[in-house]
Design a binder for these strands. Structure first.
Length: 471
RNA sequence: GCCCCCAUCGUCUAGUGGCCUAGGACGUCGCCCUCUCACGGCGAAAACAGGGGUUCGAACCCCCUUGGGGGCGCCA
């Protein structure tokens, strides 16, 4: 049953990656949850590139992120916002903050602070900016802008997943709003941008919980309405730590290369931290109708691809062969050059008889190569010695039998099964010999389907070569 | 060290006080189906971290311990 989207509440969410690296699967899942949340509520899903760290931001990462989202089918609304282009606005708000007395200038040097930080570590004391410049009348450039955090009290906020979260103000330092070079920091701009973009709900990783009170103070200081927060459980690597570059194929697009279908990836990712009773397999449409934060869990999940493989097999099996062929032409063109001269219709037929037996696209391509690539090398160990002579006989008989066949599956089945019956042989034996002649080994798609797809010329040529190999 | 969050099979999870001798899924292992490989079917092993409460009754509520994760930047 499609649940009617809640149209009463306006929903605007955003996904704000920073283009300082590839989009890893944790980020992809955050994007997915946001997108699903927006689609479920008939709201907007905005994209913002947090590229204020000019040193580390790169265009290729922007492209990687956009391409990852496109691949997964997570269409964003409107044009992506580049945070770096909003710096004048950020400075304007910073000035307001100083004017209202919520922020002050600080000329402590990074070196001095580092030394103090080390000292704290040695003494096993918690480090926090000690407030040296809080009441200074005069500061010398270069200086940073710090927010004045109350010494007492606590800051609390509601989390849609975890309930109320409370953090004592004494544990929050007078953090930097604007760097000495004039560039604003993350915790500051994120508030300004989310407000300006009209963001109503923030779904993000649990690693941001500690940033939330800092941001909440700013919302209050600026008189902005506080959005609703939902801190998602994290996806951890197999070593149970936060996902990062060193976790092998952490980049989303790598999974495309590994031959996972986007629908499998989406299905897999959504089940990491979200559930819907006993159901495991979801179409995107179904997700749009049933997704809800209430079913998001609290505990971190380990990224383990066993279930992904299973899901991928399901989606591979179900995908219309023509669509799957097109998909492969789009993303695996290089790998398919061996099939250039194969007629399109035969290629699709080939895909059709293999797609149900593999769990990713490289495996599918490997099998297609067996069908359409170069003739195989014959692995004589595939047949026991005692099987070789009867196999030769069967191969040569079947080859002759095929002269008159129209190569339809029905006709092939009738002829070959008939031959086995006539000979008083088990069909399995004949099949094994024929399979060997066409593949050089013992594994193949269904025999008749394979023969039909390969066609008379290839089949008889390979049979001839097999006979030669058998001596 | 300080702060925050979390805790059910190996993994993803259902479970919101009695329906739980804890359900599903992946993976693993048997068996069946079968022209091979897959698919599919059937079955098995496999978990409430520990200790205290509260209650007639606790996987579920509270506290402590332990364990795990995250955060403590002029990164985002």
């Amino acid at each position: 049953m499609a649940e009617a989207p809640n149209t009463k509440e306006k929903v605007v969410v955003r996904f704000p990656p920073s283009p300082t690296g590839f989009l890893h699967v944790g980020g992809a899942r955050t994007a997915l949850f946001n997108w699903l949340f927006a689609r479920h509520h008939g709201g907007q899903f905005l994209l913002r590139l947090e590229d204020t760290d000019r040193e580390r931001s790169e265009d290729r990462f922007v492209e990687d992120i956009l391409e990852s989202l496109r691949w997964l089918g997570l269409k964003w609304d409107g044009e992506p916002v580049f945070q770096s282009r909003r710096i004048e606005r950020h400075k304007e708000v910073a000035a307001q903050l100083v004017e209202k007395g919520f922020a002050y200038k600080c000329d402590c040097t990074p070196e001095a602070l580092d030394a103090y930080r080390k000292e704290c570590q040695q003494k096993k004391l918690p480090y926090r900016y000690p407030g040296i410049c809080r009441d200074k009348k005069e500061v010398r450039a270069p200086y940073v802008l710090r927010i004045r955090v109350p010494d007492d009290g606590e800051t609390r906020f509601a989390d849609m997943i975890r309930g109320e979260i409370t953090i004592p103000n004494k544990d929050i330092e007078d953090w930097v709003l604007v760097r000495s070079d004039g560039n604003p920091t993350y915790n500051f701009v994120v508030v300004v941008d989310d407000h300006d973009m009209g963001v109503t709900h923030i779904l993000r990783g649990e690693d941001h919980i500690n940033n939330t009170p800092k941001q909440a103070m700013l919302y209050e200081a600026l008189g902005y309405a506080l959005p609703k927060f939902a801190h998602l459980p994290m996806i951890l690597g197999s070593d149970r730590t936060k996902l990062s570059k060193r976790h092998g194929a952490a980049s989303t697009l790598e999974y495309r290369k590994m031959g996972y279908l986007p629908e499998a990836m989406v299905n897999f990712l959504v089940r990491l931290g979200w559930s819907f009773g006993d159901e495991e397999v979801f179409t995107v449409d179904k997700l749009k109708s049933v997704f809800s934060v209430e079913h998001i869990g609290k505990a971190n999940a380990i990224f383990n691809t066993e279930k992904l493989d299973w899901l991928n097999g399901i989606y591979l099996r179900e995908k219309p062969s023509q669509e799957l062929s097109d998909y492969m032409q789009q993303y695996f063109k290089e790998e398919l050059t061996f099939a250039k001269s194969v007629p399109a219709a035969s290629f699709v037929e080939g895909v059709k008889i293999i797609q149900g037996k593999v769990k990713n696209i490289p495996e599918l391509i490997e099998q297609l190569y067996c069908l359409f690539g170069e003739d195989p090398d014959y692995d004589l160990t595939a047949l026991k010695d005692a099987e070789k002579a009867p196999a030769k006989q069967a191969i040569s008989d079947v080859s002759a039998l095929l002269d008159a066949s129209d190569f339809s599956i029905e006709d092939l089945e009738k002829r070959i099964r008939g031959y086995a019956d006539d000979k008083g042989e088990k069909f399995g034996k004949i099949a094994k010999a024929v399979r060997f002649s066409l593949t050089g080994g013992k594994i193949s798609p269904g025999l008749f389907e394979m023969i039909s797809v390969q066609g008379k010329e290839t089949v008889q040529r390979r049979m001839g070569r097999a006979l030669k190999a058998l001596g």
